[in-house]
Simulated scan of single mutants.
Amino acid sequence: MNKLFIFQDNIDKDYRKELEYAYKLCKNSSHKVEIGNLTVDYLVDNSIEVVISNGLPKDWLFILKGLNIVTVTLDKIEKYLDLVDIVIDFKSQDSNKYFTGEIYSVCKNKDFVFDEIVNLITKLDWDTNFWGFPVAYLSSKYLTDNILLRIEKVIKRDNIKLIEYLCNCHDSKSVKFAEKNGFHFTDIRLSFEKPLNEKYDFKLPNNITFDRAKNSDIQELREFSKDLYKDSRYFFDDNFEREKVSEFYQTWIERAVLGQFDDACYCLYDNGTPFGFCTIKYNVLNTANIGLFGLSKKYQGKGLAKTLLYLIFNMLSEKNVHTVFVVTQGRNYAAQKLYQGVGFSTKTTELWYHKWL
């Protein structure tokens, strides 16, 4: 996307700092101008597609909308939500909105992929190679007429066949835009969080051990995990082959063991044979995400899933991780019950949409 950063005086210094840092991240592919030098001719002559600012006067916002230019504002969400296409507000604690909270600070969180948001749509290279056709993710989160218009160029350029879109269930406008424009609902995504502020004491059953997965465990992990993910959105989208969906999650686990996708995989072992696993990805702000979690069917229903999670909590606490996150599907009631049973609380509810082209 051809981007323009607009700077102006008399702006909250914290939001101004966010904009300045964002420009440093994107300056190789962006223009920069002070608002006093901004003209319609400048926008047209430079083929600007996305404008990023700390919130512009309303007359300029209306002009940009008329030119079908996507507006991104790093400022107070309650002030600009209904005026621009995308708002990023690291000071807001409104978890029902996109891009709110400290994890969306460009300055503080090095894991925050700001450039993906302002590029609006991101081609997923690994998914593309795995599935055998071009796949993209709608990284803008918000969905508007201007965003749909601007991503069309990328879709045609990269010959995208599938667009994946994760929409906040509270964002009724984007839900309506999605359903009106050919996106079909595939899944509910539930995100949970848990603070790690206690140590769990318990004794493992005889012959059961806990350790980080080794390369020699990969074949066994792949074998018993192949039928564990029949609640996934891919399984319920008939455009995907069932065997290929199983291979997708088997490959995820293998890459986690190798530290190539998630950072690590930890296992429960029975006499040295893995039967349960949990993949982990570490974040900058002393938090971590659980990626894939599963137990071999013959070990289910014995309380060992909780045992594995408690061991994971203790291990993460020793690494100074203070909060852990995990997601599951809306149709996976067993996983929801498990996570709630060990102290996770619901953080967000989102809707997965697919659009096939």
Rank of each mutant, 00 (worst) to 15 (best):
T279Q: 05
F277C: 06
L81S: 13
E193G: 09
L204V: 10
D59I: 11
F210I: 07
E116R: 14
F275R: 00
L67R: 05
N239P: 00
F90A: 05
L138Q: 04
S345C: 12
W126H: 08
E78L: 10
D127E: 08
V84K: 07
G272W: 00
L308N: 00
V50N: 05
T122I: 06
K302M: 08
N28E: 14
E193P: 03
I77R: 10
Q300S: 12
K153H: 09
K32Q: 09
V245P: 02
E193F: 08
D227G: 07
N129I: 11
D82Y: 11
G294F: 00
W352D: 08
C265I: 06
V321H: 03
K58G: 07
V245Y: 04
I155D: 03
N28P: 04
D171N: 00
I151S: 06
H184P: 01
E179V: 12
L285D: 14
G272H: 00
E78D: 12
K58Y: 07
V33G: 02
F192G: 04
M1D: 04
F248Q: 09
N28D: 14
D270W: 08
L138G: 03
W252F: 08
F275V: 00
H184K: 13
D75M: 11
F177P: 07
F261D: 15
Y165F: 11
S172W: 08
S296N: 13
W126S: 09
L204Y: 06
K347A: 13
K161R: 13
D59M: 09
Y269D: 10
F7T: 05
Q340C: 09
N10V: 09
W126G: 10
G259F: 02
K306F: 02
V33S: 04
V40A: 10
G55E: 00
A288C: 07
S246C: 08
N320G: 05
D85S: 05
N54V: 03
N215H: 15
T209M: 07
K91F: 11
D237Y: 06
I88A: 11
I160H: 02
L311F: 02
H322D: 13
Y23L: 05
K123Y: 05
A256S: 14
S140H: 07
R189Q: 15
E102L: 14
N68S: 15
V326T: 04
G341S: 15
D82R: 14
L56I: 09
T348G: 05
S246F: 03
D12I: 08
L25I: 15
K97C: 13
K302V: 01
N207C: 12
K24R: 12
E223L: 14
D201H: 14
D115A: 14
K203Y: 09
F5C: 05
I151P: 04
Y269K: 13
D94E: 13
G101C: 00
I218L: 01
Y333G: 11
K306W: 01
T144F: 06
E247L: 14
I103C: 14
R157C: 09
N286V: 01
A288I: 03
I290F: 04
K123W: 03
D237F: 04
K319G: 07
G132E: 08
S139K: 02
D9K: 14
N168G: 06
E247G: 12
V257S: 05
N119V: 00
F192T: 02
L311V: 04
F202G: 05
C26R: 09
S216F: 11
K302E: 05
N159F: 03
Y15N: 03
W252C: 07
M1L: 08
